[in-house]
């Protein structure tokens, strides 16, 4: 505590020794972004609008949690974008506005998502295809299936009882989508931090060979990780279609890059071996706040792109420094 100079390293050093070290860096980044938002556009930072960001980020957050699970194991799931679209068009077409069909269709679509995920897992684990290639190929197959299923012209709509979960508010303040997200997050958190599955997943990501030699069933755990990612991607698609109201192939949100960016910003490294559900959700919210800031600044499109890219890079870089 002698001659402390406020350099970046100094601040990082201080941070590492303070009780704040248990707080994930992404949380600071998120708080910082909210403060920027409040300065740029006070209206946007009002509580009601901030809560709304949770709802806006809901579908992406579900997909990103699945991506995080796969990334912790050292893998990557590039098929999530197409799974979201397939879930979207299938749900709308099969439900076709009938309230009583919602529950069976939702279960069916989740099942299909899980099966796609498991198929990814089989490719990676049994056929030893690298995750990048396996899930990229699956991405094309699944998008083709969505086109085939819808004939390129998706039809059907979502009845009010399901739309509520994408659009509605409980007691007029809590977005229903935030409740869905919270429930999923709790289950995922429990799975990752309180079960042997979670420990084994981390072990595989940290060192596959050591995990194998210590008796971890690498195959089974990896398979399950991809299955969960597929399941959560289809859940994201269901939440999205509840938000949109009709089946559509024209989904503008980039779920693939968004889910990877949120995971990485939230502290899941590409190499795997660590990562948390809370971090990833904070990563998604970070992106949502960032988009709000860029909107409020009314930057020209070119400036927006550059700012978006630089800020995401900075967030990732900052995280990399903070944890070393």
């Amino acid at each position: 505590m002698t001659s402390f100079t406020p350099t970046t390293n100094g601040i990082l050093d201080l941070y590492r020794r303070s009780p704040l070290r248990h707080v994930q860096p992404v949380v600071f980044a998120l708080v910082g972004m909210v403060i920027v938002l409040a300065l740029v556009s006070p209206r946007s930072a009002e509580p009601a609008n901030l809560i709304n960001l949770v709802r806006q980020g809901g579908p992406l957050a579900l997909v990103a949690i699945g991506q995080t699970i796969v990334m912790i194991s050292g893998g990557l799931d590039l098929s999530v974008g197409s799974v979201v679209i397939l879930a979207d068009v299938m749900a709308a077409q099969m439900i076709s506005g009938q309230e009583e069909r919602v529950i069976p269709v939702v279960l069916l679509v989740l099942g299909i998502g899980a099966l796609i995920g498991l198929a990814n897992g089989v490719l990676v684990v049994l056929l030893r295809v690298t995750p990048f290639i396996a899930t990229l190929g699956m991405n094309f197959v699944v998008f083709g299936a969505a086109l085939l299923y819808s004939g390129g012209a998706p039809r059907g709509d979502i009845p009010p009882n399901m739309r509520f979960w994408g659009n509605g508010f409980i007691a007029e303040v809590i977005p229903a989508a935030a409740v869905v997200l919270l429930l999923v997050a709790l289950v995922a958190w429990f799975l990752l931090s309180r079960t042997t599955f979670g420990r084994r997943l981390t072990a595989i990501g940290a060192n596959r060979r050591v995990a194998y030699l210590s008796g971890v069933s690498v195959r089974r755990v990896t398979l399950l990780a991809y299955g969960l990612s597929g399941l959560l991607a289809s859940a994201g698609g269901l939440l999205l279609v509840a938000f949109v109201g009709v089946g559509t192939l024209e989904v503008g949100t980039d779920f693939l890059l968004g889910s990877i960016a949120a995971s990485v910003i939230g502290g899941t490294p590409f190499e795997g071996g660590k990562g948390t559900v809370g971090g990833t959700i904070a990563g998604v919210l970070f992106l949502m706040v960032l988009y709000s800031i860029l909107t409020a600044l009314a930057l020209p499109v070119s400036g927006r792109r550059i700012a978006e890219g630089l800020i995401i890079l900075a967030a990732v870089a900052l995280y990399a420094r903070a944890r070393t």
Binding site: E250, G252, T253, S292, V301
Partner: peptide, 19 residues
């Protein structure tokens, strides 16, 4: 830029309405 898509159009306008 909302890519002519519903979800991006809605999200963009929600942010604009807030600001």
């Amino acid at each position: 830029d909302a890519l002519w898509a519903y979800d991006q159009g809605k999200l963009a306008v929600e942010r604009m309405l807030a600001a």
